[in-house]
Amino acid sequence: MNSINQSRSECTPFIWPIGGGKGGTGKSFLTINIGILLARQGYKTLLIDADLGTPNLHTIIGLPNPKTSLSDFVNKTVSTLEETVLEMPVHNLFLISGARNKLDIANFAHEQKMKMLRAISRLHYDYILLDLGAGTAFNTIDFFTLSDSGIFVCIPEPTSIENIYRLIRSVYIRKIRQVLQINCFRNLAGQAEAQNRDAVIQHPEYLLTTLKQIDPEQGGNIEKILQAFQFKLVVNQVRKRDNPRTGTLICKIIEKHLGMRIQFIGNVGFDDRVHETVCMKSPYILKYAHSQTALDLHGVLQGITGGTNRQTAALAASTSI
């Protein structure tokens, strides 16, 4: 590891929650393979299996019985989150395995969750990738409050696209709420809500218009914060016959109709051999480093490291998420 990276991990990490619909879109697949690529570029990288209740990242990575996991932190068997970190066979790569028992965590108290989120944001790594559970449960969405960034994964099928739209909408609304809770915006948010009750829930884009009408300056500031979010879209398991432009079009719809910026960072090709590597519990990118799908993963990596993002300003500014 070179000295630049060493000093980087002393400051706040880049945190990337990775979300997608149910039905195996490839969140875990991307988390592991992108994690390995980051580690190989010299970044100290931590993968967190945040699929609360049904974790499996450890299995895919070839660690059938992790010694420690998030459960230990939640159950206070250990006092710091650092103690749950496992070393990986790949240099620079680390893992916090998911909670083993559904009861441990699926409905754990708000206070505990806050404590966990805060602990995550204080870890010293260059990159932290959060492999999220499928769907739009609160516990999933809340992980997006950790940073100004997020990756959404879908596959080119109607069911998956329906799910991804639902997820993106939920995350965006959650992020807006988070921003509006910052002290200086609370007053304005209250006025806007009084004027237009449903806006936050149904039409975030109208909400912003209302905010700007009431207070152009503060409304503009809120818009700036929202536009600084780094949301990325990956279309995974793309086959030859699929329209390669679907990802671009999805982002266009979101930008036009939700008023939210999201960047398409690439198609990842479907490869039969992914299944084989999962069964062998060995990461795909190590085994088939020069396949088309591996090239695609490098493209996604580029889309992630190309921009900049830090732990969310909103989180730092507000005590309650």
């Binding site: 109607p158 696209i161 739209y165 329209n243 679907t246 079009l249 999805i250 266009k252 719809i253 109709h257």
Partner: peptide, 15 residues
Amino acid sequence: YDLYHDDSLASYSFF
């Protein structure tokens, strides 16, 4: 039209 037509995959379920 590609974006909005009834069978457009990209905008499926959005509207």
